[in-house]
Design a protein around this nucleic acid. Structure first.
Length: 343
DNA sequence: CACGCCCTCCGCCAAA
DNA sequence: TTTTTGGCGGAGGGCG
């Protein structure tokens, strides 16, 4: 499956550093089926086609594919599609949508055959929502970390013990296989793919156009951090640390300070943190603080300096820079756009 | 806006 | 022997 296709491509499309000749186009096939969730299909398609506009070139060649030429989505709207049997590789991205059709009962054998075939010919494979069940049924997720909609996480884990299911993150990437949580998380995932292909600038432009504008950082749990789950190799200590960090963004959250707090060496803290969250400590801390700052901007009338201080940025300058980098707008401008109307 | 310093991250390796 | 740990140092990037 995936491992069979990587050797030819020593460094995947994610290594943005190597300025190897970039491919002119990147074919994307979105796999749909009867009772697919329309948003799972539409969200990523909008993101990728939007990226073409933002990048001012037709980089992504996006198609929706299904067993038949017309499918019925779970909301009742019909969707036109390219027949899967006519889809040939190689592909840039194979993305499987989710929906009731993916989680209810038996998956269509012919659909699985097509997905398996195309997965082996794609640079990377992705799923939205319960589309992870389809990928898992094809064996694509075996041995990998993966996420899915919280409501089917247990089902995924039960049906496919070889998959390391983690229902916390909005999306997960493991060795070229990307999985995402429910519905709109597919948009976050797609934006991440765009960012790795065409740069964060393009991704931010698309996000702004779609106006759901960077609502999420990708670091938040699908749900409250208080809903603690447990499974074999889960890192309780790190969960607790993360929960504490969320509540104490003003504290010293440097690597040495965090390491001291959980009685680990700095090296070990960094390793386990990345293992548990998929993010480096500094990245995570910055996102945490910016989330807090954004909330304060939207829900209070504190001046920017106070917002900065309360969210763990001692200096306004640093805050300003970080905020603009992540959200593509200055704090003041963000408040004008999203803040509560003063009484 | 620029530049130097410092923090962070990660590969590497030796020790446990 | 294999796996995990922790220290080192360089590269990179952001802060001041």
């Amino acid at each position: 499956m995936i491992s069979a296709m990587t050797p030819t491509e020593p460094s995947g499309p994610r290594s943005a550093k190597t300025s190897a000749p970039r491919p002119a186009t990147h074919p994307i096939v979105v796999v749909a089926f009867d009772d697919v969730q329309l948003l799972d299909v539409a969200g990523p398609v909008e993101v990728f086609t939007g990226a073409n506009l933002a990048a001012r070139r037709p980089f992504y060649d996006v198609r929706v594919a299904a067993l038949s030429e017309t499918i019925r989505t779970s909301s009742g709207l019909a969707l036109g599609a390219t027949p899967l049997r006519r889809v040939r590789g190689p592909l840039g991205t194979l993305l499987v949508a989710g929906g009731p059709g993916a989680s209810a009962g038996e998956l269509d054998g012919e659909l699985l055959r097509h997905v398996r075939r195309l997965a082996g010919r794609a640079e990377r494979v992705a799923s939205v929502c319960s589309g992870a069940l389809v990928l898992a049924a094809c064996g694509v997720l075996d041995g990998r970390r993966a996420t899915t909609h919280w409501a089917v996480a247990d089902l995924l884990a039960a049906r496919h013990p070889a998959v390391r299911v983690d229902a916390d993150p909005i999306y997960i990437e493991d060795a070229g296989v990307w999985t995402s949580a429910g519905v709109t998380a597919g948009i976050d995932l797609s934006l991440a793919l765009v960012a790795s292909d065409l740069g964060a600038g393009v991704a931010n432009t698309v996000a702004r156009w779609l106006v759901l504008a960077a609502r999420r950082t990708g670091l938040q749990s699908q749900f409250s951090p208080h809903l603690v789950r447990s499974w074999p190799d889960h890192d309780r200590d790190l969960d607790e640390l993360v929960a504490w960090m969320r509540a104490h963004v003003r504290h010293d959250l440097s690597v040495p300070a965090l390491a001291r707090r959980v009685h680990l060496s700095e090296r070990q803290l960094a390793r386990r943190f990345k293992q548990a969250t998929g993010h480096t400590p500094a990245d995570f801390v910055e996102a945490l603080r910016l989330d807090a700052a954004r909330d304060l901007l939207e829900t209070t009338s504190l001046d920017v300096a106070s917002v900065a201080r309360r969210s763990g940025f001692p200096r306004r300058e640093t805050f300003h820079r970080a905020f603009a980098k992540r959200f593509g707008a200055t704090p003041a401008h963000h408040r004008v756009s999203f803040g509560a109307r003063p009484a």
